[in-house]
Amino acid sequence: MHVFYYDENYMYAGEEYVNTDVLPPNSTNIKWDPSILNPRFDKKKNAWIEAATEEYKESIKPIESAPSKFELLEKQFADLFYVVATGGE
């Protein structure tokens, strides 16, 4: 059986396969949704919930890179084509 461990604060603490039908202490066989960044087990709901704060979520968002030279040229070409197609208006 595949089990997921949680610590004393119910935060995810690892996983492993065990050769038993009985769950070890501080574990569950319930997998969390992959969209959860920082899983914490809620024993009352018998489900994993999100423990990450909004501040943490914002801090790990990738920084948008500046457009490449090719992307800039592509936009300029599209703008120029629009001007020519509309008769210079």
Score class of each variant (00 low, 15 high):
Met1Gln: 13
Val3Met: 06
Asp7Lys: 08
Glu8Trp: 07
Tyr10Arg: 03
Val18Ile: 15
Asn19Pro: 02
Thr20His: 08
Leu23Ser: 05
Pro25Val: 10
Asn26Leu: 07
Ser27His: 06
Ser27Phe: 04
Thr28Glu: 06
Asn29Arg: 12
Lys31Ala: 09
Trp32Gly: 01
Trp32Gln: 02
Ser35Cys: 05
Arg40Asp: 00
Phe41Cys: 01
Asp42Pro: 01
Lys44Ile: 10
Trp48Tyr: 02
Trp48Pro: 00
Trp48Asn: 00
Ile49Asp: 00
Ala51Lys: 01
Ala51Met: 11
Ala52Gly: 02
Thr53Ser: 15
Thr53Arg: 09
Tyr56Lys: 06
Tyr56Ala: 06
Lys57Pro: 00
Lys57Glu: 04
Lys57Gln: 08
Glu58Gln: 13
Glu58Trp: 02
Ser59Ala: 09
Ser59Cys: 03
Ile60His: 04
Ile60Asp: 05
Lys61Arg: 11
Pro62His: 02
Ser65Leu: 12
Ala66Gly: 07
Ala66Pro: 04
Pro67Glu: 08
Ser68Phe: 06
Lys69Glu: 07
Phe70Ile: 14
Phe70Lys: 08
Phe70Ser: 05
Leu73Ile: 08
Glu74Val: 07
Glu74Lys: 09
Leu80Val: 05
Phe81Thr: 15
Phe81Trp: 13
Tyr82Val: 15
Val84Leu: 07
Thr86Ser: 15
Gly87His: 06
Gly88Gln: 03
